Simulated scan of single mutants.
Amino acid sequence: MVVKPLGNRVLVKVKETEEKTKGGIYIPQTAQEKTQTGVVVAVGTDESIKVKVGDQVLYDKYAGTQIKIDDVEHLVLSADDILAIIE
């Protein structure tokens, strides 16, 4: 499935959370914190968007709409919900 965001929307592939702590303890999915980082997969048509495909970004914790594309978690969010580019 191909998803093309419109306007100032951005499609971000959510970074998977670690299931195991540094000490070797496994954390169940229900107890894990929601991740706030991901990789930009597609950008909308608005020219004011400051990110590009491939950028690793930090976004607002409760922003966007979750979707699954080929069994992989993605978020469609407003470019305004992106807080920073991680270099």
Rank of each mutant, 00 (worst) to 15 (best):
V43W: 09
M1F: 03
L6W: 09
V72N: 05
D70G: 01
M1V: 01
E87I: 03
A42Y: 00
V14M: 11
L6G: 04
D55M: 06
N8I: 06
D55F: 12
T35W: 03
G38Q: 03
G54F: 13
I67G: 05
G54T: 09
V10S: 11
L75K: 11
Y26A: 06
L58M: 15
I82C: 05
Q36R: 08
I69P: 02
L75E: 13
I67T: 02
A31T: 06
T30R: 10
K15W: 11
Q56F: 07
Y59S: 04
V14H: 01
G38D: 02
R9F: 00
K52E: 04
E73I: 00
D71W: 04
Q36E: 10
E47D: 12
Y26K: 04
T21Q: 01
K15L: 12
V72H: 00
Q56P: 03
I82M: 15
A63W: 08
A63T: 01
L77C: 15
Y26I: 08
L75Q: 08
N8Q: 13
T17S: 14
I69Y: 04
I85G: 04
L75I: 05
K34R: 10
V39E: 12
Q29S: 10
P28I: 04
G54V: 07
L6C: 06
V3F: 10
E73Q: 05
D80Q: 11
A31I: 00
K22I: 09
Y59D: 01
V39F: 12
S78M: 15
V41Y: 07
I27F: 07
K13P: 00
D55A: 07
I49F: 14
T35S: 13
Y59M: 06
A42S: 07
Y26R: 08
K61C: 07
L83K: 15
V40R: 08
I27A: 00
D60R: 03
T21I: 00
K20A: 10
V14D: 03
D70P: 00
E33A: 04
I82G: 07
D46E: 15
K22W: 13
D80T: 11
E33T: 01
G38I: 10
V10H: 13
Y26S: 09
M1D: 06
D60G: 02
L58N: 12
V10K: 10
K15Y: 10
T17W: 08
D55W: 12
S78N: 15
A84S: 15
V12E: 09
I86T: 11
R9Y: 00
G64F: 14
D46V: 10
I85Y: 15
S78R: 08
S78P: 01
I49D: 14
E33R: 03
A79R: 10
E33F: 01
D55G: 05
T30F: 13
Q66V: 06
Y26L: 05
K50I: 08
K68Y: 14
H74G: 02
Y62L: 03
N8R: 14
G38S: 12
V2L: 07
